[in-house]
Write a protein that binds this DNA or RNA. Structure first.
Length: 346
DNA sequence: AACCCGCTCAACCGCCCATGC
DNA sequence: TGCATGGGCGGTTGAGCGGGT
C-alpha cells in the first residue's frame, strides 16, 4: 500500500541535471511526476504514526506554512502539499470528526444552496469540519439521495426537494431532539435549552428563499430557526456573535453570525461526547504539544439554544449510525417522489 | 466461509491564483 | 512584464470495511 519511492533527495547540481534529463525523456506528466517522486525519495499513500508525530512536533515548534520547506526541514519524505493536507484535514487539534450532526447538515444544505460547491467557504462556517469532509458528505449522502430520486443534484427539482422538504424536516428533527433533551435533563440544563416544536408550515409560507440574509456590517445571518418553521428560543448567555475577532476559524466578510456561536472555553470541548479525532491520542501522548490549551472548543461553536450536549446524550441516533439516512426513510422517499411526480414545487 | 457489492473517507491530482523576484 | 514558487481549491481515486448473499 505504501508507495515508497527509491532514490536519493535532490541536493546537488548533478542530481538537478538528472532531474532535467528525466523531465525531458519522460513521455507523460504522470511519468515525470513518478520519476520526480523517486528522485526525491518521496512517500505517497497513507501516513504512518511516526510521520504524524514528526509533522505534529514540527508544527508545534515552528508553526505552519511554507509547506515545502516544512516538509524538508521536518525530515518528512512527503510533498509540502501532502503535509498541508494531512495537517489540515486530519492532524489539526481542532478538527472535529465523527457524524455530521443535523444542525451541520442543515447548514451545509443552506450554504450549498447559496454558494454551490465552494467547499472551503462552506467549511469556514462549520468550525472543526474540513472542506474535504463536507465535500465527502455531499457526494456520499446528498448525491445519493438525488440518485434515489432519479434527478440531478443540481436540478431545480432536487433543490426544491431540499428546500421545501428536506430542510424543514431537518429543522423539525432538530427541534424535536432539543425538546427531548430538555425534557430529560436537569431543570438547570433545561432552562438553557428552551425549544418549542411547532409545525413547519410557516417555513413553506414565509420563506420561499432559503438564501441567508446579509445583515449589517457585512455579516450574514442564517435564517433563524423560526424562519424554518420552529420557534426556538436562543440562550443569550451562551450565544456570542461569530466574528473574525472572536473566532479561531477564518471568517470572511460575510461571516455567519447565525445561531452557531463560538465560545472559547476548552472545558466544553472535552465534556463533549463527540467522537474526537485519532490525533487526540497523539496529543495526550506527547506532552511537548500545547495546542489544546489555546484551542477554541469545537462544541463551543454549537452552543446555541438547542443544547447539543443534551441532544447527543439523549438521542441514540446522534451517537451512531448515519443520521442523514435517518431523515430519509422509505416513507419520506415515497412522499418526496410523489411531490416530484406531481410537480408540487412548480 | 467466501465472495460480491456499495459506501466511506483519506489521499492524491490538476488547475488556478497570489506573491515575490 | 514574465517567470517561479507556494498554497488553496474542487474533483477524483482507491483501500478498507461492513453488510448481504
Amino acid at each position: 500500500m505504501d508507495h515508497v519511492k527509491g532514490g536519493g533527495r535532490v541536493c546537488n547540481q548533478q542530481q538537478l541535471q538528472q532531474q532535467q534529463q528525466i523531465s525531458a525523456s519522460s513521455t507523460t506528466i504522470a511519468d515525470q511526476e513518478d520519476m520526480m517522486m523517486m528522485m526525491m525519495d518521496l512517500r505517497r499513500g497513507p501516513w504512518t504514526v511516526e510521520e504524524d508525530f514528526t509533522l505534529i512536533n514540527y508544527i508545534a515548534h515552528h508553526g505552519e506554512g511554507r509547506w515545502n520547506s516544512l516538509a524538508r526541514c521536518a525530515g518528512l519524505k512527503r510533498t509540502g502539499k501532502s503535509c498541508r493536507l494531512r495537517w489540515l484535514n486530519y492532524l489539526r487539534p481542532d478538527v472535529r470528526r465523527g457524524n455530521i450532526t443535523l444542525e451541520e447538515q442543515l447548514l451545509i444544505l443552506e450554504l450549498h444552496s447559496r454558494w454551490g460547491n465552494r467547499w472551503s467557504k462552506i467549511a469556514q462556517h462549520l468550525p472543526g469540519r474540513t472542506d474535504n469532509e463536507i465535500k465527502n458528505y455531499w457526494r456520499t449522502r446528498v448525491q445519493k439521495h438525488a440518485k434515489q430520486l432519479k434527478c440531478d443534484v443540481n436540478s431545480k427539482q432536487f433543490k426544491d426537494t431540499m428546500r421545501y422538504l428536506w430542510m424543514p424536516r431537518l429543522v423539525e428533527r432538530i427541534q424535536a431532539a432539543a425538546a427531548a433533551g430538555a425534557n430529560s435533563s436537569t431543570a438547570a440544563r433545561a432552562t438553557a435549552a428552551t425549544a418549542t416544536t411547532t409545525s413547519n408550515s410557516n417555513y413553506h409560507q414565509g420563506n420561499t428563499s432559503m438564501v441567508a440574509d446579509v445583515g449589517s456590517g457585512g455579516q450574514v445571518i442564517l435564517p433563524q430557526a423560526s424562519t424554518y418553521g420552529g420557534r426556538v428560543t436562543m440562550n443569550p448567555s451562551r450565544s456570542t456573535s461569530y466574528t473574525p475577532e472572536n473566532s479561531s476559524t477564518p471568517a470572511s466578510s460575510d461571516s455567519f453570525t447565525a445561531q452557531f456561536s463560538p465560545v472559547s472555553d476548552l472545558t466544553d470541548c472535552y465534556n463533549y461526547p463527540v467522537k474526537q479525532s485519532n490525533n487526540q491520542d497523539y496529543y495526550q501522548a506527547n506532552n511537548q504539544l500545547s495546542y489544546g490549551e489555546t484551542l477554541t472548543s469545537p462544541t463551543g461553536y454549537f452552543n446555541q439554544a438547542l443544547d447539543f450536549h443534551l441532544m447527543e446524550q439523549n438521542n441514540a441516533w446522534m451517537d451512531g449510525g448515519d443520521v442523514s439516512d435517518n431523515l430519509w426513510n422509505d416513507e419520506d422517499a415515497w412522499f418526496f417522489q410523489q411531490q416530484l411526480n406531481s410537480n408540487t414545487f412548480n
